[in-house]
Design a protein around this nucleic acid. Structure first.
Lengths: 141, 141
DNA sequence: GACTTATTGTGAATGATTCTCAGCCTCATC
DNA sequence: GATGAGGCTGAGAATCATTCACAATAAGTC
């Protein structure tokens, strides 16, 4: 079989999705991004949004977390391992540098596990949302 | 009108679901539990399985994690806060006692967040599954 | 045993995500 | 600038997990 020269083409949709994700302050779902692009007058198909979000995640240029049965995405340029502090109200996210994960590897070894990966997400309420919290959540766009 | 005395009835289905969950060594989905009960000749409706799993989770008698867009459940009697070391192959789970989460509260405060909750799940491959599979596990932490 | 009402199960509804495929569009080449 | 190969797009169907609605059933009380 000849070597595949898979050329990644620069398309309008690709950059539109990528920029929209980068403009987002926190985590957004594919559906939210799709709706936002429509509202802004640069409609991109839902399938295309999903495709690019998965691609960006695979390339390590986006982070994804699973909350309430929905996949949330966020632009992320740092290649290194990190976690997130996520606002449950507005979706705003801050990257966290965990201090020491040695105990984790030790615990895995102790239980006979080969450690593959771990997941740490911290959910709370950011300063802004704590300030204007009459308890009512606002639109998460 | 008389005062509402909401009696929780002891039904066959309730105990069947509860026992099936307790018999499971690791995390299982509602669908898996439902299928297993059918196979064992004690069929329980899918809605009923979902209902009881949510109820058990609310009561703190079951843990739940969200992986690959599916909700996984596991019987859990300890009321205190803990995390899990989960085998990605067979679903087997071990409870973990994290050493210190003070850094986490500090990070939240530092970023102006009011800490509500956090989620830590560790995925790997247990000894049995590592033995089975020629050992092609990767550590992508 | 009669009665009340919590619980159950079936099947439809919902919502997120993935798949399919015909047509479009980018880009290397000439 | 024209051409052609094949990667990309988008509409809609398919899939899957979960929830909802409601009539039938059965547990607990008197």
């Amino acid at each position: 079989m000849p070597q595949q020269k898979s050329v990644t083409r620069g398309t309008l949709q690709r950059s539109t999705v990528q920029r929209a994700l980068q403009r987002s302050d926190g985590f957004v779902t594919a559906q939210q991004l799709h709706r936002r692009l429509h509202d802004e007058g640069t409609p991109v198909g839902l399938s295309t949004v999903y495709r690019h979000l998965s691609a960006l995640t695979d390339l390590g240029r986006a982070d994804t977390i699973l909350v309430h049965s929905a996949q949330y995405y966020r632009a992320c340029e740092t290649g290194r391992h990190h976690h997130h502090l996520v606002c449950e109200v507005c979706g705003k996210a801050v990257e966290l540098d965990p201090p020491d994960e040695a105990w984790l590897r030790a615990a895995a070894t102790e239980n006979g596990f080969t450690l593959v990966r771990h997941l740490l997400e911290v959910f709370g309420r950011c300063a802004d949302c704590t300030a204007d919290s009459g308890g009512d959540a606002r639109d998460t766009t």
